[in-house]
Amino acid sequence: MIQEPVGHDPEGSEESEPEATRRDAGVAESSRANRGWWDRNADEYQVEHGTFLGDDRFVWCPEGLDEVEAELLGPAEELKGRDVLEIGAGAAQCARWLAAQGARPVALDLSHRQLQHALRIGSAFPLVCADAGALPFADASFDVVCSAYGALPFVADPRLVLREVRRVLRPGGRLVFSVTHPIRWAFPDEPGPEGLSVAASYFDRTPYVEQGDDGSAVYVEHHRTIGDRVRDIVSSGFRLVDLVEPEWPAWNTSEWGGWSPLRGNLIPGTAIFVCERD
């Protein structure tokens, strides 16, 4: 399930608009803030992006890269009978597509409200409300784990998630996840010309935090450089087999936060990491 990008518009998320800042935010604070944010904003998110995502498509990113064409999980016919875990599933659109290919998906999300939307649309597979850093599954339970902007951009220590994923994957299993392309953290989160000039250091890993009047976080995103992501993957027991940076397609005229045809034709917006368990 594609999540909201860096610097999203928080209007309507709180009674008063949160303060946007850059400061440290740990594992517990990030998890608590993002669970609350998605529970409060799931309805608005599904209304705004539901048409783009569809009910049973597997879309990797705002660029619109579809698993039907990309086959990052492997050929669709080879998914039949595979146990697949989707992390950050939202309304389980991707899991629904997987089920249609004959896979046995499980859709996991931190937000109970997001999973209620999965029930509204309909699902014939398990829906699990849990933190990706503590997966409630036995070792070697899955053949494939996937995540379209789920969990990893929002956790303080992505290695906790990656090590949990490795634990629940069977030997030789595949992990594929998409995140905001790290280069975007150096640019303003604007879709127009004002978003084309570098405004911050790419190497500044200070989290983006929206906080309430009392200083408590209500939304958190964490920045990792490309090198950080690669090191996280390798140190967690995976082999990186591909890094996909989707180009902006001519058919996509939509704007999604800082994503737009103007920016998308000049700088990447998404990074997709294709990994295999050693």
Score class of each variant (00 low, 15 high):
W38Q: 05
E86S: 07
A103S: 10
R113S: 15
D83N: 09
R120G: 12
E86W: 09
E86A: 06
L53F: 11
Q116M: 12
P136R: 07
N41M: 15
A118E: 08
G81M: 08
A42C: 07
L110N: 01
L53S: 07
L127R: 02
L53G: 00
L72H: 04
P126D: 13
W37P: 02
A70M: 01
D66Q: 10
L119F: 00
Q93E: 13
V84L: 13
A91E: 03
L110D: 00
D109K: 01
N41K: 05
V84T: 06
L115C: 03
D66V: 10
R120S: 11
R96W: 06
A100M: 14
S141H: 02
D66P: 08
T51S: 10
P75W: 07
L119P: 00
L73N: 05
A33W: 02
W60N: 01
A95P: 04
A118D: 02
L79A: 03
D131V: 09
E77D: 14
E78H: 10
G54N: 10
V106T: 13
A76K: 14
P105C: 09
E71I: 03
E86R: 01
G133P: 00
D109G: 13
S30Y: 07
R40F: 08
G122F: 05
V106P: 08
D131R: 12
A100I: 03
H49L: 12
V106R: 03
L79S: 00
G74F: 01
R96V: 03
H49T: 06
Q93N: 12
R113E: 14
G64H: 06
G50S: 04
A95V: 06
L127Y: 03
C129V: 12
T51H: 14
L53W: 00
D139Q: 15
V47I: 13
G64C: 10
D139W: 10
R35S: 10
F137D: 02
H112P: 07
H49K: 11
D139Y: 09
G50K: 03
Q101G: 05
A103M: 09
Y45M: 13
S30R: 07
P126I: 05
Y45T: 02
E77S: 05
R113G: 10
E77K: 04
G64A: 11
D56I: 00
R40I: 06
Q101H: 10
C129F: 03
N34S: 04
E71M: 06
A132W: 04
L65Q: 01
L65G: 00
A89F: 00
L53D: 00
R57I: 09
E48T: 13
R96K: 13
D109A: 05
A91G: 14
P62E: 09
W37D: 08
F125Q: 07
C94G: 11
C94V: 12
F52G: 01
P105N: 11
G64W: 08
A124N: 14
F125D: 00
Q114M: 15
A138K: 13
G90L: 04
V68F: 02
R32I: 14
S123D: 08
